[in-house]
Amino acid sequence: MRVDAFDFDLPNERIALRPARPRDAARMLVVDGDRIVDAGVGDLPAWLHPGDCLVFNDTRVIPAQLEGRRGDAKIGATLHKRIDLRRWQAFVRNAKRLRVGETVDFGSEVSALAEERLPDGSFILAFAGDEPVEVLLERAGTMPLPPYIAGKRATDEEDRSDYQTMFAAKDGAVAAPTAALHFTPGLLAALAAMGIATETLTLHVGAGTFLPVKADDTEDHVMHAEWGRIEADTAARLNAVRAAGGRIIAVGTTSLRLLESAAQDDGTIAAFVDDTAIFITPGYRFKAIDGLMTNFHLPRSTLFMLVSALMGLETMQAAYAHAIANDYRFYSYGDASLLLPVRAV
């Protein structure tokens, strides 16, 4: 499909720069088949059924944004994929001033060697010393806010907690699974009281999630790879939910992409430990999930393509037009949508 089919006009003031407080006070647009309903995140239990299961991503965002110097040149680096214990792949700002074999000083006794430049222009950075890279980042790094927020205001201490979900447990993401930012202990308790189960998986979200689609046709876009894990016992419980007639609702596109990566042709979910570069566009047949809770996405983005594949492009164009006209807040710190496609009989 042509990428411009997924374009839409978004007023700049619709981009949220701070999250709702409390987190579950955000609005939620429900797209139930072709029906569009205004609701709030706190209304989520009313839209689910006993026996349904919400699936969350338990990745934890690391402070992966670094600012440093190579001689007199200012160099910025956003780590986005671990290679091994000491090496990370990174997008580099002012990369024309950095050559392979040179060292960048990020301050706070943190430095890294530019070991290799990859075909996409990113670098493999090898960090000096014996301390875990995560320890170095806590000392020298800042939270890697999306460019549409970071371009409008500076990162601050509030972002250390605001840009982390309550499920965050496993270090490795450089972008938050933002749909789960809306959840609070109170909301989870209300869901449990309704007989709605929860499960977690791990997908370490990479900075590639923010890369624009430069191709004119979706078939020419190369999707970034991210590492994920679904434990065997988690897969077994999810399969039991489906077998009992319950629905699997992915919380966030990251959870959805990993579930679909692990899905078999018959719709069962298998244990999974690997990279995934799954790219979902209209025409894709969903196997593992029955619904999705997600935030509002960028025009022409792979994530808007994904939600259009789930609900239909015309339905999502109408939903987004409604959201813009009714002052919903967009992107990572914005409001939520609950997408419930008509279930095949």
Rank of each mutant, 00 (worst) to 15 (best):
T268R: 15
H204W: 05
D7Y: 04
F167W: 10
V100N: 01
R21A: 05
A39H: 10
D130F: 12
V133T: 09
T178W: 02
A215P: 01
G101W: 13
L188C: 11
D105Y: 02
R329F: 11
L113R: 13
D105I: 02
L48R: 01
A263R: 06
R97K: 15
G252I: 10
L298V: 10
M293C: 13
V345D: 15
E199R: 14
D233R: 03
P144C: 08
F279N: 07
V342N: 09
A236F: 05
G101I: 12
I62L: 14
P132V: 12
A20Q: 01
D216G: 15
R86G: 13
D52L: 06
V342H: 10
T165A: 07
I269Y: 11
R160W: 01
R70N: 15
H182F: 01
H182C: 03
R99V: 12
A46K: 09
A197M: 04
P212R: 03
A215K: 05
R87G: 07
P177H: 05
G121S: 12
G101P: 09
A318N: 13
D24W: 02
D274K: 14
G76E: 15
F106S: 08
D216K: 14
L17T: 06
A90T: 11
L201P: 05
R35N: 05
D220H: 14
A215T: 09
V41I: 13
I248C: 04
D159H: 00
R14H: 08
T218D: 00
L10K: 08
G186A: 08
A46F: 01
M28E: 05
R237P: 07
F127K: 04
T234Y: 03
D290M: 12
Y333N: 06
V104R: 01
D265H: 11
G186Y: 01
D327T: 08
A126Y: 02
K170Q: 14
P119W: 03
D217F: 04
G334E: 03
A318W: 02
T302R: 07
R242C: 04
T59Q: 11
F6R: 07
N326Q: 12
D24C: 03
F330R: 13
G291K: 11
V133I: 13
E115T: 10
R99S: 15
T142E: 15
R160M: 00
L191G: 07
A243G: 03
F296N: 15
E131T: 00
A16C: 02
D274T: 07
L339D: 00
K96I: 06
P22T: 03
